[in-house]
Every structure is written in C-alpha cells, then in structure tokens.
C-alpha cells in the first residue's frame, strides 16, 4: 500500500512538470495561435541559467529558481520577437510560425548542447533542499513537494489572470481575433509580449525544478518535457489552464503507474494512445468550449 502511495506522489511530481510545461505551451497556442516547437528549449536554458547562477554567483535556491524563471521568460520574448514577430506583421499563417519555431528549436537546442559541453550536468547536492520527508511510513523528497506546490500556485495564478482579470480578457480577445481586439482598444503588442513572457517563465519553472530533481541539466531536459507536455495540452485542452494542468498531472500518474503495474515498453504507447483517443473522441480537451468557425 505504501508503495502505491509513494508512486502516486512520484506520479504527481512528475506530472506537475508536464503541467507547468503544458500551461505555457497551451497559452501561446490559444492566444497567439502558434504551435511552438521551441517551447521545450526554454526549459533547458532556464535550467542552465539557474545552474550558472548557483555555480558562478553562488545564489541560494529560491533566487536561482527566480533566475531560471526569468531566463525562460526572457527567452520566450526573444524568440517571439525574432522568429514570430516578422511573420505576424505580414499576417502569415500558423505554418510559417511553426517553421520558424522549428528553426529556433534547432538553434537553441544545439547551443544548449554547446553550453553544457554536450554533457548532462547536475545541481550540486547542497544547492537545493535535497532531503527526504517521511510521513506515516510514506517517503517523498522535499523537491517533489516543492514541485507540486509550485505547479498548483502557477496554475491558480495563471487561471485567475486569464479568466478573472482585465488583462486576461484582453488576451482572450487577441486570441479570438486580433484586429477585433485592437478595435475595442486592446493593445495586441503588449498582450503578445506578456503572453510570450508568461509562457516562457512557466516552461522555465518546469525546467529548473525538473533539472534539479532528475539530476539532468542538458538539452534532453526540454525534449523530454516537450513530448509529454504536448500530450497534456491535447488531453487537457489548450484554451483552459486548469485542463492542461490536470491533464499533465494525470499523465504523470498514468506514466508511473503503467510502468509499475503494466510494462515499461508499453508505457509511452499507453500515453500516446490515450492522446490520440482524446483527439478523435473529444477534440476540445477536458474543459474544451465551443469553437468559432466561420461558416
């Protein structure tokens, strides 16, 4: 029984990383209409930046996380301005942005490889709270607890921002139709920048926490998050933060449980089959609303 509970916690912690990744990915997709293949590299670079902050500047854990999050956000904005803004100005469709995001992915992914010397690095064990907690015979690590709390806080914050603030209304307006939003007095440029930053920051948070708890700071960090985070977006629906977060956690639990009780070689198959099933049977995700299609 305690094994089951421990694995449940492991699944929640792993899923929280997917969730953090997914809410940013979904936000960009819903608001800016971009399928951003470079989203995973923000996580890798955030982890690299946080590691540098620890090793070069000797910053403590909370500040290092902050550095990583800021780095992820800044990178999100930079990629948006360099790779997406020129296309946006021209009114090119989603395909062009997908290609430039692939280009950004190739560049950032390979530069991340150069930055880590093609190696996988890890945070020094004394640079983060690395202990184990024992509650009634159940063991879990402090980092797992921190990851789950961070995910809950980010999801709640993002949800309140998107659904219950004036700014969120502006975001949704831009996501629906940019010109129309501009007509009613929303400044699309500000919305674009803020969305890109928030998405990059969420991915960055996933990167730093994931880089610490899996002892892996390298380009593969972002790639691993990318595939599963993408699945979470599809299952959860991209236009609702809660859906993406819930789906991320559920996928994490499913992954851990299917490895423990079914088979590791079928683990990813189960995840992706579920993904495809959702796409075909419920293509708007768990909380998906109605779509606006020109008749």
């Amino acid at each position: 029984m305690s094994l089951f509970v421990e694995q449940l916690i492991n699944g929640c912690a792993l899923g929280s990383l997917y969730a953090l990744f997914a809410i940013g990915f979904g936000l960009v997709f819903a608001t800016l209409g971009i399928l951003n293949a470079a989203h995973g590299t923000y996580a890798s670079w955030a982890a690299i930046a946080a590691l540098a902050a620890v090793q070069r500047l000797g910053l403590p854990f909370p500040l290092a996380v902050l550095v990583g999050v800021a780095a992820g956000g800044a990178l999100g904005v930079a990629v948006d301005q360099i790779a997406f803004q020129p296309l946006r100005r021209r009114g090119a469709g989603m395909l062009g942005a997908l290609i430039t995001s692939i280009a950004a992915w190739i560049v950032l992914d390979n530069l991340a490889g150069v930055a880590t010397g093609q190696d996988s690095l890890s945070f020094p064990t004394d640079s983060y709270p690395g202990g184990m907690l024992h509650v009634g015979g159940i063991a879990f690590s402090t980092m797992q607890l921190i990851t789950i709390i961070a995910m809950l806080a980010a999801t709640l914050g993002m949800h309140l921002l998107v659904r219950h603030s004036r700014f969120g209304a502006a975001m949704r307006a831009v996501g629906w139709k940019e010109q129309a939003a501009a007509i009613v007095g929303v400044d699309p440029r500000r919305v674009v920048l803020a969305t890109a930053f928030l998405a990059g920051a969420a991915s960055g948070l996933a990167g730093v926490l994931g880089g610490i708890s899996t002892a892996n700071v390298s380009y593969s960090l972002g790639e691993g998050l990318m595939l599963k985070g993408f699945a979470a977006v599809v299952v959860g629906g991209y236009d609702d933060v809660r859906g993406a977060a819930l789906a991320g956690v559920a996928l994490g639990i499913l992954e851990v449980m299917s490895a423990q009780y079914v088979s590791t070689s079928l683990r990813d198959g189960i995840t992706y089959a579920l993904l495809l099933g959702f796409l075909l049977l419920r293509p708007r995700g768990l909380f998906g609303g109605t779509s606006f299609v020109r008749a």
Binding site: I82, A83, P86, L87, G96, I99, T100, I102, A103, A104, W105, I106, V107, N110, L111, V114
Partner: peptide
C-alpha cells in the same frame, strides 16, 4: 546552429 539560422532567415 547555422542550419537553423538559414531556415529562420529564409522563412522571414
């Protein structure tokens, strides 16, 4: 990296 930059420039 150069490959990616070429792709980016061509697209833009």
């Amino acid at each position: 990296v150069a490959n990616g930059i070429c792709l980016l420039l061509i697209m833009i």
